[in-house]
Amino acid sequence: MADHLLLIVRLAGRRVALPAAEVEGVVELDGITPTPKAAAHVAGLSALRSRVLTVIDGLAALEFGRSPVDGLAEAIVVISGGHPYALLVEAVEDVVEINRAATPVRGRVGAGWDRVAAGMVEVEGSLLLLVDPHLLIAGPTAQAA
């Protein structure tokens, strides 16, 4: 079941899970073109073959500051609202299959995370936060709107 395939990434020092069905691929970005005056969580633009990806800084999307960008940066490609995005993460760890559906988050999981949390999943004995990549991409500004 594709729904139960999860991509485990490291983001803001935590291991989090993303639904693999939402992820088009994992890329290494070579150079990011800045986008002055764009939303704060946009790190810039990057080219993937002939496509222009909007690079989202995962750290900034959580309002935890900005990721340092130098040299190659690891990112996952997500299509959201018809636009291709590259979501910067600290590391891509693994793809795992789980056989139990995600359970809702109880209570708060902390500033920043609350907005993007889609639930909790148990992966190989440890409990991970399931993050909705579209909410990450929408960024902190979307909530005000």
Partner: peptide, 27 residues
């Protein structure tokens, strides 16, 4: 020219994105 993502368009300065000859994105 391709449309830019909303988070980029919100700057109010851009009409879209494109790729230059050298393969780098241009606003």
């Amino acid at each position: 020219v391709k449309p830019a993502a909303p988070a980029v368009m919100m700057a109010g300065l851009y009409a879209g994105t494109t790729l230059a000859d050298d393969g780098r994105p241009i606003l």
